[in-house]
């Protein structure tokens, strides 16, 4: 009887595992099927490098270059802000902060990670956006820069917690060795600890960026959503994600526009997949 119970439970777990793989495969196939249908109407080059995204004009123009560049710009901006701050924060938590303060900081970072992106977007909209408009004296504060800043807040928790783990995984003996040679605490950190954990830090950065690229709600609320090729950080942009979220509701099922949004989904999927694989490679890389 007990054996039978074990058997049933084992099989149930197996079934759950298989189901999740099955669903992922199903989603991917669906995405692929709907996305690829687009290329009956538009060439792949024209789609990826076309400079105009006018999905409801007649005939529709479905070039996603402005969207790709919008995503890249917002993401790079967020990376430039969040990487140095995130790594510095991780160093501080892992190496400098007194233990009580350390716990408070970690809790704070976790809290930051728990803020729903729509709330961050909302806060950005009422605080950051008017401020940027005023400080830079530009017609609208809904810009790539605003998006970058808010997204930096989202990437930060990922970067901090993974980089922090990377620091903890550096053998204590390295630190002792450096200090015993007369290195100061700071020299030990940047000459030994950071190089020794570089693969973990890179993984942290990649996963942080991955989070930013896939983010939708906040960017949709504060980047202005103008599908034009961006020239500076101070102008509205539209990202790949925001495009799908904003237009899927109104696209006629089976239209070119509809298929194009799925194709945008494929592009996003490929980018995130690539980033995750790279991060994984760094995380599991053998030390030197």
């Amino acid at each position: 009887m007990r054996k039978f119970k074990e058997f049933i439970i084992e099989k149930l777990i197996l079934l759950c595992g298989l189901a999740s793989i099955f669903f992922v495969a199903l989603i991917f196939l669906f995405l692929l099927k709907e996305g690829i249908a687009l290329f009956k109407y538009v060439g792949i080059g024209e789609f990826l490098f076309g400079k105009k995204w006018y999905p409801i004009s007649e005939p529709p123009q479905l070039g996603i270059l402005p969207l790709i560049l919008g995503s890249i710009m917002v993401t790079l901006g967020a990376a430039v802000i969040s990487i140095p701050i995130g790594i510095a924060c991780a160093v501080y938590i892992a190496e400098v902060a007194p233990s009580k303060f350390k716990e408070a900081l970690k809790a704070g970072i976790e809290l930051l990670a728990a803020i729903p992106s729509v709330v961050l977007g909302f806060i950005g909209m009422v605080t950051l956006v008017p401020w940027i408009k005023q400080v830079f004296n530009i017609p609208t504060g809904l810009t790539a820069l605003s998006g970058s800043i808010m997204l930096a807040f989202m990437a930060m928790p990922t970067i901090v917690s993974i980089a922090e783990d990377a620091f903890y995984s550096v053998p204590k003996t390295y630190k002792e060795g450096a200090l015993a040679l007369g290195a100061t605490h700071w020299q030990t950190i940047y000459k030994v600890l950071i190089p020794a954990s570089s693969s973990g830090i890179l993984a942290a950065v990649m996963l942080g960026i991955g989070r930013v690229i896939g983010e939708t709600m906040a960017v949709m609320m504060i980047t202005g959503n103008a599908a034009v090729i961006p020239k500076t950080l101070m102008q509205p942009v539209r990202t790949l994600t925001a495009t799908i979220a904003a237009e899927m509701g109104e696209a006629v099922v089976g239209s070119e526009h509809y298929f194009a949004l799925f194709a945008v989904g494929i592009v996003l999927f490929v980018i995130s997949f690539f980033i995750n694989v790279v991060a994984d490679l760094f995380l599991h890389q053998k030390k030197v």
Binding site: T173, E176, A180, L181, G182, A196
Partner: peptide, 21 residues
């Protein structure tokens, strides 16, 4: 001054601990 002291008094550890450099 610990930096001066440790420069003068070096230590070899039980497990060899070269840096990953």
């Amino acid at each position: 001054d610990l930096v001066v002291l440790r420069k003068k008094v070096g230590m070899v550890f039980q497990r060899p601990n070269p840096f990953p450099l």
